[in-house]
């Protein structure tokens, strides 16, 4: 049976973390609060080879090798809707929404032939997978592949920058390696989050000051919004700290 899929605009996938290509993160810096999300990919994982091309290969203290993916991410709590999700559940920036949103439900951090499970709606999602929906994936190939290819292309293009960043963090925050090892040892994996300020410093972005100026008000607003929510204590601490960092970067001569 060939998988069928059609989006019903239920808005459920427009919540929480949104991994962006670097290009999209920069283009939407005035819209999304950004952080860098790390994912170790074990060498026995299906997507390992691809991950070595999209990210950095790192040797852990236990001598195992993992591929590390770093995604610039619109960093929102899972319960928070995308700031551009309208009241009618449609996208407020449909014409220039990020690649990640366009490619859904496919995911170019994984091989094209390994996408079938992504077409199964997650709990609570109202994707149409009935006979009324069109076939979108056949013989392990994506039928309309333009968005997938564009996002994959951007990821390949940014890979050298991401490697520079991984090397920088492992040099100046060497304990990150132990955190990666712990996550890689768990069957469920895990993520690590680092700041945009470290990325801007490591990659010497000439537009760092402007990006920080765009980010600062977003971080302040989210710090305020998460202030009294006991479930979001960690988010609140992150936003408050990053707000200070963005203020400081934006002030730099």
């Amino acid at each position: 049976m060939e998988p069928r899929f059609s989006c019903t605009a239920c808005g459920k996938c427009c919540h929480g973390w949104l991994p962006l290509t670097l290009k999209d993160a920069v283009a939407h810096a005035g819209r999304f609060p950004l952080a860098m999300v790390w994912t170790p990919v074990r060498s026995n994982a299906k997507s390992y080879d691809l991950a070595t091309r999209l990210g950095q290969t790192v040797r852990l203290p236990n001598r195992k090798t993992v591929a590390v993916l770093v995604q610039p991410t619109a960093y929102l709590p899972p319960s928070y809707p995308c700031p551009e999700l309208r009241a009618d559940n449609l996208c407020g920036i449909h014409a220039d929404k990020p690649s990640r949103c366009r490619t859904m439900p496919f995911y170019p951090y994984r091989d094209e032939k390994d996408q079938a499970d992504l077409l199964i709606p997650r709990k609570g999602w109202q994707c149409d997978v009935s006979a009324a929906a069109p076939v979108v994936y056949s013989n392990h190939a994506i039928l309309d592949r333009a968005d997938f290819d564009r996002e994959r292309g951007e990821l390949l293009e940014q890979a050298p920058v991401m490697r520079t960043y991984v090397d920088y963090i492992l040099k100046y925050m060497p304990w990150t390696l132990n955190d990666l090892a712990k996550m890689a040892a768990k069957p469920t994996g895990g993520n690590l989050v680092t700041s945009l300020s470290s990325f801007l410093t490591a990659t010497r972005r000439p537009d760092a000051k402007a990006l920080a100026a765009a980010q600062a008000p977003l971080m302040h607003a989210l710090a305020e919004r998460t202030r009294n929510d006991p479930a979001l204590v960690d988010y609140h601490r992150s936003y408050s700290g990053w707000a200070k960092e963005m203020d400081s970067l934006a002030r730099r001569p």
Binding site: Y168, S197, T201, K244, E245, M246, R252
Partner: peptide, 15 residues
């Protein structure tokens, strides 16, 4: 010198 994340250092000093 260029690797120094001044923004983060200021936050650390503060927190």
């Amino acid at each position: 010198r260029e690797d120094f994340n001044r923004a983060e250092a200021e936050r650390v000093a503060d927190e």
